[in-house]
Design a protein around this nucleic acid. Structure first.
Lengths: 194, 194
DNA sequence: TAGGACATGTAATCAGTTACATGATTAA
DNA sequence: TTAATCATGTAACTGATTACATGTCCTA
């Protein structure tokens, strides 16, 4: 096997198939949205299908049409032994684990805070906290669904990590809010202080 | 102005120019590496130059050759009033602040933990902690350099956010390490417990 | 005088997204 | 019977990276 190096997303898709059972591209997408998404992002449908075709060409997965015959019925994928070995080798990846990628549009805007009003900035961060609380709820739901399933032990740890990271994200936002407030000395519009 | 929507990276580059002074593409890259990088990632040289050309075409920046004449001497960029207005409008961006993007290759590997040995997984996370500690040091250096400069108040807040976020990242890793250890019941190779 | 930092760019490639098209199956 | 969900894919585009090419300026 010619060690074709693949993008992490390909390994993520293959990883989705490394858990017991076979599934369709569509199912894989739902799965990605409910777990992978919290620590790695979820690829678009079109990319999942593309990766599955590539993985099949490489012999890392096999597929079979499940709908009897006919045009474009559903196609279920399963990982091969070769695929499992390749995935394990990648996951082990002693040499090069690529860096954590983070793009935080809210902090980017705070960084540009000299262009905005303090009130607007505060609103932006508060909205972010609200969104994050929503995500936190979703992770907890996912965690509840995964609870007790033996085969999901590691995905559960990843979800717990995600839960804690969202909690941390909220704390980080609040601390930033405090920093922002400290920048604007507390106004006292009624009486002018000496 | 025809509200040409630009990718966040273009605004980030323009943002770098929104602080007092003019600078070259090369300087912008150094800057991005020392600040932007910690919460948004730093674009490659080639992309910075490309964005600068685009921003100039849009009238958001102007440039002048600093080396007297001759082939490819350095070119310094400055933001225009129009550019500043456009940037402020984007930063305010009430409607659509895009979601936080996170790709965490270490958590991805833990998620795939059923394919690895517990020891290997532990090493992977410990290495990540070490790398993160290195980054933390870099943020603190950046923070020290920015200290006291009046115009950098908001960038400083972004850096403080980055510092806390790296501290949180380390705590998160340690918690995950504990979760992993709990998965593998403590071995007692000397005497078999009843 | 050699090496490193400064400085700018081109070419090739790829990863990944959005928008669109199509149709089957299931539940209200 | 109609809407939602399941299901798969194509086309066009673009964001972004890597590798390469080129040359200047400064300093040990």
């Amino acid at each position: 096997m010619p060690t074709t190096s693949l993008p992490p997303t390909a390994w993520a898709v293959l990883g989705l198939l490394s858990f017991p059972g076979e599934r369709t591209g569509y199912e894989l997408k739902k799965w990605a949205d409910a777990s992978l998404r919290f620590f790695y992002g979820a690829p678009a449908f079109s990319q999942i299908y593309a990766e599955l075709r590539r993985l099949e060409e490489l012999g890392h997965v096999t597929s079979r049409r499940s709908g009897p015959q006919e045009p474009r019925t559903k196609r279920s994928y399963a990982i091969t032994e070769q695929g499992r070995a390749a995935l394990a080798a990648w996951a082990d990846g002693g040499q090069d684990v690529d860096p954590v990628g983070l793009r935080h549009p809210v902090v980017l805007r705070v960084w540009l805070g000299h262009l905005a009003t303090p009130e607007r900035l505060e609103t932006l961060v508060r909205e972010h906290v609200a969104r994050t609380e929503g995500e936190l709820k979703e992770v907890r739901d996912a965690l509840a669904r995964a609870d007790g399933v033996e085969a999901w032990a590691h995905p559960q740890i990843a979800l717990r990590w995600s839960e804690r990271r969202l909690e941390a994200e909220i704390e980080l936002s609040r601390a930033m809010l405090a920093d922002l407030a400290a920048l604007t000395p507390p106004e006292d519009p009624q009486r002018a202080a000496p």
